[in-house]
């Protein structure tokens, strides 16, 4: 009853007895090469149904709590980062890039965070600084415009959002005080293809926009067309070859989002 089992680590031979044999009968390995095989009722049967279900439930609960804990304990810092990043992106639309202290630069250039009324006038945004502009526009019906002052000139910055090939794309468009000439743009994306669609985030692509006009006969004409197919160079920008769907996404995004600001863009009364 009390026999133990020993397995030879070299060849796998199993010896039964109270201690390991001096020499392995198969491969002549010394006793030190033997290890005891421990088995008994105390060992849990890891293949039973009860154990499997129990294991899975515990694992799910542990992981869920872990993720919930991490997420909620880091949320405040993350939101701050998102806010800072949004400000950086707004500044990028004014061609102010790579700033170190985004907060200070933002306060220096951006004079007001405004909302567009239905008749095209502006009122000050009294709520908190927003970062999700799609949600703001669709659910809360709040159209944000940022009023900036660069070298004494008034600029308007509009958040835009849309869909690329793989996921969301968004950006900011800065217009001159005539509400028509593009001063600068910034685009970013969640998961476009590197080297192709992701090039919309490059300064090279964004650098094509400044100087373009936005409105043609009261309609949004600013857009992106297939590479080499620009017909109206005053309004259109070359797309990215190989990134056609993303380029079309940028085009649609500009049309759709700027269109919702049309009442403001065509309202030429000074406020």
């Amino acid at each position: 009853m009390a026999t133990k089992k020993f397995r030879c680590k070299v060849c796998g031979y199993v010896h039964e007895g109270n201690s390991a044999p001096d020499k392995c009968p198969i491969c002549n390995a010394p006793a030190s090469e033997f290890e005891e095989i421990k088995e008994g009722k105390s060992k849990l049967d890891t293949n039973s149904n009860v154990y499997t279900i129990f294991y899975a439930s515990v694992m799910v609960i542990v992981v869920a709590f872990l993720l919930a804990f991490v997420s909620s304990s880091l949320r405040a810092t993350q939101n701050k980062n998102v806010e800072l990043d949004t400000k950086k992106q707004i500044l990028a639309a004014l061609n102010i890039r790579g700033v170190k202290d985004a907060e200070a630069e933002y306060n220096k250039y951006i004079k007001a965070d405004m909302l567009v009324n239905e008749d095209g006038t502006l009122t000050e945004n009294t709520g908190a600084f927003a970062t999700a502009y799609e949600k703001e526009a669709k659910e809360n019906n709040r159209l944000h415009v940022f009023v900036a002052e660069v070298d004494g000139q008034k600029k308007y910055i509009f958040p835009v959002y849309g869909a690329g090939l793989w996921g969301a794309i968004w950006g900011y468009v800065a217009l001159d005080s005539d509400k028509n000439t593009v001063y600068g743009v910034y685009f970013s994306h969640a998961s476009e293809t590197p080297g192709l669609g992701a090039e919309i985030a490059s300064e090279h692509f964004q650098g094509e926009f400044p100087g373009k006009k936005t409105l043609e006969d009261g309609d949004i004409a600013l857009g992106v067309v297939k590479y080499g197919k620009v017909e109206k160079p005053e309004y259109q920008v070359d797309g990215i070859s190989g990134g056609t769907i993303t380029s079309v996404g940028v085009n649609d995004m500009l049309r759709k989002c700027l269109n919702s600001y049309k009442s403001f863009l065509t309202n030429n009364k000074e406020e």
Partner: peptide, 26 residues
Amino acid sequence: PNRIRIIVQLVVVAALVTIVSEILKA
């Protein structure tokens, strides 16, 4: 448990990646 080992591995990997990306975000 042998029968759900792939699921366990996947959960561990996914949880790890999510936690790392959350920490990086912060």
